[in-house]
Write a protein that binds this DNA or RNA. Sequence first.
DNA 1: CCGGGCAATATTGCATGCAGTTTCTATATT
DNA 2: AATATAGAAACTGCATGCAATATTGCCCGG
Lengths: 219, 219
Amino acid sequence: MTSSNKQTQTDKLAAEIGDAILSGVLTPGTRLDEHRLAEQYAVSRTPVREAIRSLAATGLVELRPRRSAVVAEITPAQLEIMFVAMGELEATCARLSAMSMTPIERRRLQNQHERMGALVESDDVAGFIEANLTFHGLIYAGSHNGILADMAVGLRRRLGPYRRAQFRSPGRLPRSQAEHDRIMQAIVSGDAATAHAAMLNHVSLVEDTFIGLTATRAA
Amino acid sequence: MTSSNKQTQTDKLAAEIGDAILSGVLTPGTRLDEHRLAEQYAVSRTPVREAIRSLAATGLVELRPRRSAVVAEITPAQLEIMFVAMGELEATCARLSAMSMTPIERRRLQNQHERMGALVESDDVAGFIEANLTFHGLIYAGSHNGILADMAVGLRRRLGPYRRAQFRSPGRLPRSQAEHDRIMQAIVSGDAATAHAAMLNHVSLVEDTFIGLTATRAA
DNA sequence: CCGGGCAATATTGCATGCAGTTTCTATATT
DNA sequence: AATATAGAAACTGCATGCAATATTGCCCGG
């Protein structure tokens, strides 16, 4: 009883096509030909159509009646807006976390932060990146608000391809760790306003990195 | 060339079924039988299926593989979370508005607020409710962030059925107007932190009204 | 009288086919 | 040579049909 057999073809297709878009296999502007996709995944057009419609709801593809669906284009302006939105959502989650995390959750966040300190010492970039996801994930969860957390997770996922290089610049790891320290301290001590401000500051700096990235890509 | 003919059946169905859910015609827990819906709207099952999948992505219906889709249940806990999320989004939009509204937008917000003052004087509840939507809409738009604005609009739409009675309690109109005044002043003067706090306070009070409402419904 | 198992029914998931529209191409005209 | 136009090919939107799975009702045993 494989787990992949439990969900429908449509769901599997939506996941696969979505991953293909997020991983860059399907680039923005690419037409999603139903026939071609059906043939490619060895199914009929029906589940392909339904999968495309699901993806359209998430904003990954654009649906134009009577014309082919296309992979959604992201303009630099749109990217900017998405980064701002994500920053605000992260900050909001940090604020709520400061107010409503349980003692266990606060402890867990603190532990995670300390663990990341060791990764900074050993300059383990890959390990830090993964631990960083966990750190931010703990804050999403700590908000105790699934809706805001889902929004943040969705945006982070969507922005993933544009954030790849963010920890490669020298000195970024210790700086991130210092910013995390402020955030973590504020959350653990229940200081909502500081948690909000510190997180906003943190993600704004990340955003700066992204702007450099897009400039590179646009050149 | 009727405008209704331009969009596909699927889109029309998604809109109609969505409205049916939001307006309470289809109550939470109702099974969405594809045959029945197809017959009811005089189309085949295919567009119905696609419409349901669209609605599932918006959270209006819950999709369970191999079982009927059902209108999503909203538990009181879920409602609470949605109201909190919406409050945070509103407050964030107010914050961003204070930072990035154009002079014209600030002026427009001020005008709208003053217009609402007259409605309070004449105790025009219906007029105030509509103007209130515009007021908040101006703040969404003023954030200059379509993503956050869309999230806020979507949540407001979703919560609509649970907010109906909020302005009926005596003295609510003048109180709302006073709260709006603080928000408007902060935004116009560019005081982001105060705008955030004032909006959060404002919507929290609205939430209080909602809690009374659910208590009534639950009894 | 009540609960479990089995058959009948109903319903979903997917494939396929057809009609209408869009898009591409090639030809003709300026 | 460039553009407009007509025809053809391709693609989407929708309907229908079939197989697989869930649900319901019924019968039997305890």
